[in-house]
Amino acid sequence: MRAAAPGMPRSSIKAPLATLTAVCLMPLVAVAQQWKVYEYPDAGFAVQFPVPPVVAPSTFRTSAGVSLPMTRYAAREDRVLYTMSVVDFSGVNEDATSVIAETEKSFGASGRVTVAIDARINRQFGRELSVNGADGARSAVAIFFASKHLYLLVGESLPPNAIARSGDAIRFQESLQFIGPNGGFGGFGRFAGRGRFGGGFNPRALAACQGKAAGDTVQLDTPRGPVQATCVLVARPNRPPL
């Protein structure tokens, strides 16, 4: 277990480049954890939260002092803060590499970056970090830039004993998907973007089983000709009482 580092008071959310002016219109609500996918097609992403997130407009200030519109999707459950911030860079002339690099640099200024690695989600390339805050918090961070928007995901496990919930922060990070025009191949099939097969997932496979029962045989048309296929149901197990 990592020892908590002494030092500065912890801020609830790590500021990426400069000051995040959060306008929280609703309080964060903590209920029993039940991870669900939350899809935001207009924003081009989907992510899992353990509790319903609060979506609020906000402002992001770049290192050059420019204020940009931002939407913040946030939740708190137990001792983990889950935040997805989407910043609209369409009004400024910034390239993806610079924005990602500056964002990553800001995390290094506010904590100790223990892991920094190139990452790919669907057809978008960015960076994933692990950051140890001076206050003992542990954060799983994803930084991506797509369609002139900065996508900044932070799953922050709070002290004391931040490592205890570190798995939840990582799960949040691992759940990020890009959908719609951002999606391309992979991801949630029905939102996997445009293209001949919806970005890698054959929509005819889903359509072929609509109205069918598990075990029904259907014929699926593929580029290589028709094939027989069997429909199955995939069910999430109910959570029995412990």
């Binding site: 099939g189 996997a192 496979a205 889903l206 072929a208 609509q210 259907v218 027989q228 296929a229 995939v234």
Partner: peptide, 8 residues
């Protein structure tokens, strides 16, 4: 083939 009624 095994098809699922949710994304593959």
């Amino acid at each position: 083939l095994t098809l699922s009624l949710v994304p593959l």
